[in-house]
């Protein structure tokens, strides 16, 4: 039994120790907003925050998250930056198919928490690990700028 702090709540999850955090969240905790994309940290769909920093949950063992604050897409709106990002996402209608977008929002939030006024280059570098098959990259970048403007 693994105990995790997810979105401010303590959860006991019955999974083997080497289970990737992603599957502990999806199958163990029922938090299915975090997506499985590639399973080898190549696409970013599974991005969650550990102590406020982005990580790819598909290759991180669940035991590595014990004792730390895990934030998923279900809990990111409680963060003012996360809320601003989600608001900008809706306002600019960023999403197309949507599959990658929870990971995109988690990465965008992490960037804005670390850098409130990122340049285009900052955004391109920070978001380069999040792949979008619908190629919504232009709207993603615009939405990050829009969120940054509301946080200024």
């Amino acid at each position: 039994m693994t105990t995790l702090n997810v979105n401010g709540k303590s959860l006991s999850i019955d999974v083997p120790d080497d289970t990737p955090l992603l599957w502990a969240l999806r199958d163990g905790a029922g938090l299915t907003g975090t997506k499985f994309g590639c399973g080898i940290a190549q696409c970013g769909a599974c991005t969650v925050h550990i102590d406020g920093k982005p990580v790819r949950s598909c290759v991180m063992p669940v035991t590595a998250a014990q004792g730390k604050a895990v934030t998923t897409i279900e809990g990111i709106a409680a963060d003012p930056v996360g809320h601003a990002v989600q608001t900008a996402w809706r306002k600019l209608d960023v999403v197309q198919c949507g599959y990658c977008q929870s990971g995109q929002i988690m990465s965008a939030t992490a960037l804005l928490k670390a850098k409130r006024k990122p340049s285009d280059a900052d955004i391109d570098l920070a978001m380069s690990g999040n792949v979008c098959r619908c190629a919504t990259y232009v709207r993603i970048r615009a939405a990050i700028h829009a969120a940054a403007a509301t946080l200024a």
Partner: peptide
């Protein structure tokens, strides 16, 4: 910023 090595490399 926003994409540390530790995002993917534990």
């Amino acid at each position: 910023t926003g994409l540390a090595c530790s995002t993917c490399h534990y």
